[in-house]
């Protein structure tokens, strides 16, 4: 760690930022969930807007359990300290440990998240490469119009239309449920399409820029084939902005599952969140928000680690050209 190299310093700085962002996310969620309602106990005790109201004994137990009689700053400190030890409190619906509830709901969500990411990379990357490779003007314009169309469609509606066509119309795939590979296809597609569109836009733009650079012309002059230039020479350099977007997109995957899991009636973290909001389960909602920030920060840290591999100038502190 004490090595004077620039790479460890680069990593340390990134790690510091990541920790700061997590702490900040904790603070924002604390302010929104515990300060904004005025009296969180009443909010929770009302049983939310869908649930049953609690009895007076339960309310007293809640107060004691969450320490609402103590000053705010003490509450903030105790909860932060507990959260640092991985204790996110207990769900008010059934007293289940929030961390346990999140981990339990995670596996089916991870499945569609990975599926969605694959769809985004394959469709988005493929579209960008095809659009910059073709020499047909009309085809390029058509391909580049697709992403802006895709980001204008409501995600839940796209999911429902896919169900309509492929489950009810063609009977190719199941419409709901979480069993087996076929049940993964439509949710992954729904989750991945808007992300792929974003990726395609950025990658196509940076590919266009890179293909105009002198080293590409040199390669062309030396007789390297078009496809080889595109894939071997241009793509690596064009990938950096796309990687930034991919990190952003992957960090937001969990948020996307909220809608997708509702549309496909799949169990998972998204469903858990919708349910928790419905009954105003404050500790559980905060747990999900924190978990999502953790994923967001983790993914972006990973992306920061990949940058120096793609472009060694970044680790050396030399400003990159693009």
């Amino acid at each position: 760690m004490s090595a004077p190299g620039t790479l460890p310093r680069y990593l340390l700085r990134r790690l510091g930022t990541a920790v700061a962002v997590l702490w900040a996310a904790y603070t924002v969620s604390f302010v929104v969930l515990y300060l904004l309602p005025g009296d969180p106990v009443t909010t929770m005790a009302s049983g939310g807007l869908d649930g049953e109201p609690l009895t007076p004994e339960q309310i007293e137990a809640l107060k004691a359990q969450y320490g609402f009689d103590k000053p705010l700053i003490v509450q903030y400190g105790t909860r932060l300290w507990a959260a640092l030890h991985g204790d996110l409190g207990a769900s008010i619906q059934n007293g289940q440990d929030v961390r346990g509830a999140i981990l339990e709901a995670l596996p089916p969500t991870v499945q569609i998240a990975i599926g969605g990411l694959l769809v985004a990379v394959v469709l988005g990357g493929g579209l960008a490469i095809a659009a910059t490779y073709t020499s047909q003007r009309w085809l390029r314009q058509l391909l580049m119009a697709l992403p802006s169309l895709a980001v204008s469609l409501p995600v839940f509606w796209v999911g429902l239309m896919l169900v309509q066509v492929f489950a009810f119309g063609l009977h190719w795939l199941p419409s709901v449920g979480a069993s087996g590979f076929p049940a993964l296809v439509l949710p992954s597609l729904t989750l991945g399409l808007p992300m792929g569109a974003l990726l395609a836009q950025v990658l196509a733009k940076s590919l266009t820029t890179v293909l105009d650079e002198p080293y590409v012309q040199t390669a062309r002059a030396k007789g390297v084939g078009r496809a080889a230039i595109h894939v071997r020479h241009a793509l690596q350099n064009a990938a950096i902005p796309a990687l930034t977007v991919l990190g952003y997109v992957a960090g937001n995957l969990l948020a996307g599952t909220v809608v997708v899991e509702t549309v496909f009636t799949r169990p998972g973290l998204g469903r858990l969140t919708v349910q928790a909001v419905g009954v105003q389960d404050i500790p559980l909602v905060q747990g999900v928000v924190l978990f999502a920030s953790l994923v967001f920060v983790g993914v972006n840290l990973l992306v920061d680690l990949i940058y120096p591999v793609l472009d060694p100038r970044i680790a050396k502190g030399v400003p990159a050209t693009s």
Partner: peptide
């Protein structure tokens, strides 16, 4: 740092 839809849900 918090995904928009989750902030809205909170």
């Amino acid at each position: 740092s918090i995904p928009a839809i989750l902030l809205s849900l909170a």
